[in-house]
Every structure is written in structure tokens, then in C-alpha cells.
Amino acid sequence: MPPPFINAPHPLLPSIDRVYKAEEINAFGKDRGPAFYETCHLYAQSLWQIGFPAKCILLLNRALSAPLPGSEPVLQRLPLPYQAMAWLLLNRPEGQFIGNPRRHWQHLATRMVEPDKDLRTWRAWACWYLATEILPESEFPSDLEQIREEGVVEPTRAQIIEHLTRLSPADDVEQWHRALAWTHQQLGREPAQRLAVRIRRIGESELPVVKRLGHEIWRKCYPGIISEAQIEYMLSIWYQPTTMAREMEVRGTWFALIEAEALGPVGYVSFERYPENVAFINKLYLQPELHGRGVGSAALTWVEERAREMGCRSVQLRVNKHNAGAIRAYQRAGFVFVEDVCSDIGSGFVMDDYRMEKKI
């Protein structure tokens, strides 16, 4: 009788002619040598072909728990399975449970135990990063509750490279880079490059540019986070040039445009000085297609520099609890959670936010 295979073979895993069983992995006990590594790949292929992609991922995680040196011959035949993971995410089958790989690797990386805890942690973050490149965050969100309660900071690409370079006994960085390059090719996407920008304080005459950008950016970024009715309401009360000019006059609010070479204004920032020696950022937005290119980080650095000049000791802001991308960016910039804040803004709408702070 032929094996009960549902899916065609995974092209980056070894060929099999039978169904593998859990007992074949369990028999290795604590042994994480070459035979264990190869059997994980064989069992992963088996699980994929019988229609269990989520379990296939778990077996490839177990393969990555093997701290094999790069001299092991099995690694020539079966490279570290970063690209095999990416293939699974790109070819996730309709109707077969895959879970939420992004959240899965977040949990795995932050709850890792010995042996080889550090290496396995950063291999999990490397897989997490692949998931962030492939899976839409709206369908496969991070665990924001854990991020808030435990102060988890999702790492950057550079941090993953740094730690894998330090910890890897094999060729993790090379294999991970290959997987990323292949993923971008499959998605028809160019790797994000940092963009040179300048941040320029503006006067009242240029506030209509802030209004235009605000309407464009909010309508791109906020659907799914707050209702369209609330988007339009908040734009109507906060983005009138006369309202913003009044903030400048009465509260001493600074407004600045974020400008990119050959693109012109791509975002804006506003902040004011509170009596408690706090610089409070009221607005920081940029066109979503420029996220991940260092633009927001440059704007935050600019505000911090101005805040120091004013004698401030910290920078604070509020961010919507469901705005995962912004929370990630602020944490990477050094902001920490201070408190939950829910404010009634009228017409039946509320702002349900985290207040975050960075000491300077």
C-alpha cells in the first residue's frame, strides 16, 4: 500500500518512501548529533507530505537544536533549514493548519531553555524574521500581550546577524542570507535600503503639507487598527492648519517635515516641552512604503537632540495598543512601556494607547 501522502514532496527536504514516526526521533534521547539532524529532516518531510505543515516546522526547529560544527558532512547534503522554513511559509496550503509561525518563533525565542540556549534562541529569531518578511502581520500578528508584559523587544536584522556570527558553529549567517535573498526573489521584492533624510522645522505656512500627509498616511495605515469613522473624526479635529497653528502659538509645539532626497516630504513630526522636563511627541508619521528604511529612527534621533537642547530628561509618546509596527520601532529605539492610557476624545471614540518613554 502506498504511503498516505497528500502534498507533493517539499523540494528542500530529503526524499522519503514511507511515513516516519515520533518514536524514531524520541529514540535519540539527548543525542543531537548528525543522525538526529538527518532524521529530523526526514520526519519533517513525512509530516509535510501527510498534510501537517505546522508539525513539519516543529521538526525543523528540532533540527536547528543540533549544534553541529560546519565540518559535519550532513550539512553539505542538508543545509541548515532556513530556506526550507521559508519555502513552507511561502507555500502554506489552504486548509492545512500552520498556526501562527510568527508568534510561535517569538515564544520559542523568548522561552528557550538549555542546552545551547543562546544559539537556539537566535536561530529561532532568525526564523521569526523570515516569517515577518513573508507573512502579513494583519493575519499573523505578534503576541503584543507578551511584548507588553515581558518587555520583549523584537530584534533587528543586524542584531540577528551579530548574534549568529558570534554563536554559530556552522554557517548560519550564510544560509540565512541565502534564505532571505531567495525569499525576496520569490516575492519580487528588493531588500530595503536605508534612506537619507533631513528633518526640518516648519512654520505656519507649511502646515497644509502636514495636513495632506496626515490624510494620506492615516488612510493607509490605520484601517484595521481603528474604524474608518474614527480615522476621519481624528483627522478632522487634529489636522486643520488653524488647529495646528494654535498649538504652535499657545503650547509652543514644534512641527517638522521629514524630507527624502528626490521624494520631498514623506512624513512629519510634532512635539512639545512639558513642565516636567519631558519632550512629548504628539505626531510622528511617515509614508508606509518607507517603513524599515531608517526614516522613523532618524526622526526620533532628531527629536531627542532637540529635547536635550531644551534641557529635557526624557522623551515620551503614546501609541495605539494595536499598532504593532510602531510599538516595535519605538522599542528598538529604546522606549519602554510606562502605562496604559485610555482617553475619551468625543463623539463616542476613545484612544486606547500605551504611554512609552525613553530617558535621555
Rank of each mutant, 00 (worst) to 15 (best):
M1N: 11
P3D: 15
N7W: 01
N7Q: 08
L13A: 00
V19A: 11
K21L: 15
K21T: 14
A22N: 15
A27P: 12
F28G: 03
G29Q: 08
K30C: 06
H41L: 11
A44K: 01
S46V: 10
W48G: 02
G51D: 02
P53W: 04
N61G: 02
N61A: 04
R62W: 10
E72H: 06
Q76P: 07
L80H: 03
L80G: 02
Q83G: 01
W87Y: 14
L89R: 09
E94S: 11
G95D: 06
N100F: 01
R103E: 12
A109V: 02
T110M: 12
R111D: 15
R111A: 12
D116R: 02
L119M: 05
W125V: 09
W128F: 15
W128C: 06
L130E: 07
T132W: 06
E133K: 06
I134T: 12
P136T: 03
S138F: 06
E139I: 03
E139P: 04
L144P: 05
E150M: 13
G151E: 11
V152M: 04
V153Y: 09
V153M: 08
T156G: 08
Q159G: 07
I160A: 06
L164Q: 12
R166E: 14
S168C: 08
W176P: 04
A181R: 11
G188P: 09
Q193E: 14
A196D: 13
V197H: 07
R201P: 10
I202C: 14
E204S: 14
E206R: 08
L213A: 10
R219K: 11
K220I: 13
I226V: 14
A229M: 05
A229L: 14
Q230F: 11
Y233R: 04
M234F: 14
T243R: 14
A245K: 03
R246T: 02
R251V: 00
R251I: 07
A256F: 02
A262D: 12
V269K: 00
S270H: 00
E272S: 12
V278D: 13
V278S: 03
F280T: 13
N282H: 14
N282C: 06
L286F: 14
V295I: 09
G296H: 04
A298C: 05
T301N: 10
V303W: 12
V303T: 06
E305Y: 00
A307W: 13
M310P: 01
L317M: 13
N320E: 09
K321H: 12
A324S: 15
I327V: 13
Y330G: 03
Q331P: 02
V336G: 07
V336N: 14
E339W: 05
E339M: 11
S343G: 09
I345M: 04
Y354G: 05
K358S: 12
